[in-house]
């Protein structure tokens, strides 16, 4: 290839490629733009898109499964036990609600939208919505509270639960004292070995039969506890019922 030939070929190629380029840009000038005019038009959110969480408090049983799953600890839940006389209703999945949820905050400033909190929920009440426009000038505004109780209700529920707990403790101490007295009496009897094996439970189990129940007074210490339809909460549940009360109340619940 002689230099002269190369020189002219270069020029020809230069012109030709410029024309090709111009044809391409001209074609694109009339291609519809890919831009979406955002506030006026929106892209559809993918079906499984992860945006802002929502908690349907009607279904929340306050089990804190979601809070445990969250890797950044941005869900904070506080609960108060309800009284047996209070009927909190049933979730849409058929579970009985037994706890007042007195605090359910999700801090979306911390949330990484990983969605890990969604699958553990036993009642499927925490889920992703397709809201993604919730920016704020103040970061504290991103802390969303989902509870449905008013602040006064929250205080009263907490107080009431505390009172109930105190009473239960007193009752239990009394029961324990009674049981101890009984055991002391039985110590002489030959039935002692069996009673010692199940020290915490067996005496109390008999409790309903022996002392007259204080139920009519309206402040029983017995908590209506879940019959463990959800296997997981048991080890983590911050408000686990004592096995004694469980055993005690189960027959009553099932009879309902």
């Amino acid at each position: 290839m002689s230099p002269v030939y190369r020189y002219f070929r270069n020029i020809g190629k230069g012109f030709w490629t410029i024309l090709i380029g111009m044809r391409i840009t001209m074609k694109h000038l009339f291609t519809p733009a890919v831009t979406i005019q955002y506030p006026d038009a929106r892209m559809s959110i993918p079906e499984r898109g992860r945006n802002r969480l929502y908690v349907n408090m009607d279904d929340c049983i306050g089990c804190n499964q979601c809070g445990m799953a969250c890797p950044v600890d941005c869900i904070s839940i506080e609960t108060a036990k309800s009284l047996p006389t209070e009927d909190l209703g049933v979730t849409s999945t058929g579970q009985k609600k037994r706890l007042w949820v007195t605090k359910f905050d999700i801090d979306f400033a911390k949330c990484c939208y990983c969605g890990l909190c969604v699958p553990p929920c036993p009642t499927e009440c925490i889920y992703m919505t397709d809201v993604y426009e919730f920016s704020e000038y103040d970061r504290s505004n991103l802390n969303y509270s989902f509870i449905t109780l008013s602040p006064e209700e929250v205080t009263s529920k907490v107080e009431q639960a505390k009172a109930a707990e105190r009473e239960a403790a007193a009752k239990k101490a009394a029961a324990a004292a009674a049981a101890a007295a009984q055991r002391a009496a039985q110590a002489q009897a030959p039935a002692a070995p069996a009673g010692q094996d199940q020290a915490p439970t067996s005496p109390v189990q008999q409790k309903p039969a022996e002392p007259p129940r204080p139920a009519p007074t309206g402040t029983p210490e017995t908590k209506p506890s879940a019959p463990q339809t959800t296997p997981a909460p048991a080890p983590e549940n911050p408000t686990p019922d004592k096995p004694d009360t469980q055993d005690k109340t189960n027959p009553k619940d099932s009879s309902d």
Binding site: H28, L29, F30, T31, T35, Q37
Partner: peptide, 13 residues
């Protein structure tokens, strides 16, 4: 506008 549309954008709108 021309530069935007040549790049399949919309430019100022």
């Amino acid at each position: 506008k021309i530069s935007a549309h040549m790049q399949d954008r919309l430019g100022p709108m």
